[in-house]
Nucleic acid binder design. Structure first.
Ligand SMILES: [Zn+2]
Ligand SMILES: [Zn+2]
Ligand SMILES: [Zn+2]
Ligand SMILES: [Zn+2]
Lengths: 138, 138
DNA sequence: TCTTGAACCTCTAGTCACTGGAGGATGTAG
DNA sequence: CTACATCCTCCAGTGACTAGAGGTTCAAGA
């Protein structure tokens, strides 16, 4: 019933070196080993790694995931802290979107240059002088 | 008239170790030195470093900046390559925005949980099971 | 039982763009 | 001439992996 690291890798869609890395940073606990020191995993490890992978896909940092995993193992507690972590992450995502949107507008204004020589190129001009930017800050 | 690295740092708004790092990776050329091996800079270095800082603020990677600087020093060439680099970067920015927007929607749906115990928390549930996500891919 | 070979092991280093610190030398103002 | 801010080099750390070298283990087929 025990899975090798390769089987765990396929089931949880996480690369083998990444699994070993997660163990090293304490996100996964040390699994049992065969006599020849090979790792063997059980169904609980599959669940935990799936959780980690999904949280990473949703952009949570490893540190936040560590906290979420700790909280998830205390089913009777209130979920306030889980929400705090998620809302903090959501705020981060929102401000990244805001910054990138401003950036996109700036870049779109720049590519409005109508293809002359570099000495007249609007892109080079703007890069050399932030005063020509729409937004005061980036 | 020559500037110390600290004065250059203040004028171009780039930290001292970062200037030395840019020199190390060949983004800035090696400046003249005093007898005691301290760096001294001129106005051209200020302009170049300002260009670099601004391009970094606009999200260009160091490699792209290297190419832009090379191109900027050939004023009579057509600016097509400058546009290619900028448009590639703009496309990157756009797809980052798209990914983050999808992420934001997903997270906002998750925080819709009305604060119960962790065993019933929607956030934990979704993290444990991607099948509960709005979008098939992240 | 033996052999093959895929998959496993550890350890190290590389990615990107910096940032910080230790420990010592230099330059300038009073 | 002395104080001391600033400079120098070198090394290590950040986040989250990823890749490679060089060697070992395991399971299946002959
Ligand atoms: Zn142009
Ligand atoms: Zn600008
Ligand atoms: Zn909840
Ligand atoms: Zn999902």
């Amino acid at each position: 019933m025990a899975l090798t690291i390769g089987e765990l890798s396929r089931q949880a869609q996480v690369k083998v070196p990444t699994i070993r890395y997660y163990e090293q940073i304490g996100l996964l606990s040390e699994p049992v080993r065969t006599e020849g020191q090979q790792r063997r995993y059980g169904p609980e490890d599959v669940r935990r790694l799936n959780f980690i992978r999904h949280a990473r896909e949703l952009g949570f940092e490893v540190d936040a995931i560590r906290q979420l995993l700790d909280l998830a193992s205390a089913p009777d507690r209130a979920c306030g802290e889980v929400h705090d972590i998620t809302i903090a992450h959501l705020d981060e995502v929102k401000s990244k979107i805001a910054r990138l949107t401003a950036l996109r507008d700036e870049l779109e204004a720049m590519v409005g240059c109508d293809h002359r020589r570099i000495s007249e190129c609007r892109i080079i001009e703007v890069l050399a002088d932030h005063g020509q930017c729409r937004h005061a800050e980036h």
